[in-house]
Design a protein around this nucleic acid. Structure first.
Length: 243
DNA sequence: TATAATGTTTGAAC
DNA sequence: AGTTCAAACATTAT
């Protein structure tokens, strides 16, 4: 379910509940959800893959992890982890991680590292990459403290677009290619957003889950790469390996 | 039916 | 004590 763009969609879909009072709360979350009863939602925010429900003095952080889902104005068969009912509807979250962050949300998050945030700072991304010269770029792209919101699909697609082999070492990649990669991580994330809204995300995949390269027709290599051992899909003919 | 998949935290092991 | 790694969590489509 969730890479950054999917959380942005979630945020947009619940806007009708922004400013609403929670008239009923339930769910099997381990947090003290009764605390939300009667509270008014001040704002919905997102930071990468984190979905944030902000109240006056605290914030509920929801992470959909790999299998998390949600329903708006409908329910699944299973009990929600968290269900919020308002005068004008309800939102239900399933199989997700939920935590409460006390106090000012700005003290928890650096908005500059969220590729889809208005405060995204590509200079900071460059600087962060300079601090991990020996890492593989496939790991760096998944680093939520550098490219918050980027997941395995975006990782693979951006590397393919930029013609960079996922196992390339950060410091060995030419500066222009690094810059291109940073730019594309944002561009692709917003395209992902549009495509997903139109239910045509998969149609645009060039490398992820593909079996042959659309540029040269040679086989796409599938391999668990880097420290994070997430699967990479790449063309050894079209993507340069910098070691 | 077994497998793999858009992810992260935790705690054991070293 | 600091680092590393695999297990755990959990759902659905192929």
């Amino acid at each position: 379910m969730p890479e950054g763009p999917s959380i942005v969609i979630l945020k947009e879909e619940v806007q009708e509940f922004s400013g609403q009072k929670i008239i009923d709360v339930s769910g099997n979350s381990s947090i003290e959800i009764a605390r939300l009863q009667g509270k008014t939602i001040r704002k919905f925010k997102s930071w990468g893959k984190h979905f944030l429900i902000c109240f006056d003095d605290f914030t509920v952080k929801i992470h959909l992890l790999m299998y998390g889902t949600y329903r708006i104005n409908e329910r699944k068969e299973t009990m929600p982890r968290l269900s919020l009912v308002f005068a004008n509807g309800e939102v239900n979250f399933y199989t997700c991680s939920i935590k409460i962050l006390e106090g000012d949300i700005n003290l928890y998050y650096n908005w500059k590292v969220d590729v889809m945030n208005e405060n995204w700072d590509q200079i900071m991304a460059r600087q962060s990459l300079e601090k991990i010269p020996k890492q593989m770029i496939c790991d760096a792209l998944l680093d939520q403290d550098i490219f918050s919101g980027v997941g395995n699909i975006i990782k693979n697609e951006v590397l393919y677009r930029c013609k960079i082999h996922p196992e390339s070492l950060v410091t060995k990649i030419p500066s222009e290619d690094i810059q291109n990669l940073i730019n594309e991580s944002v561009i692709y994330s917003f395209q992902f957003l549009d495509w997903k809204k139109n239910y045509e995300l998969k149609k645009h995949w060039l490398a992820y889950t593909k079996s042959s390269c659309v540029r040269c027709d040679l086989p796409i290599i599938k391999k668990y790469t880097g420290i994070k051992k997430r699967k990479s899909f790449f063309c050894t003919n079209c993507q340069n390996l910098y070691l």
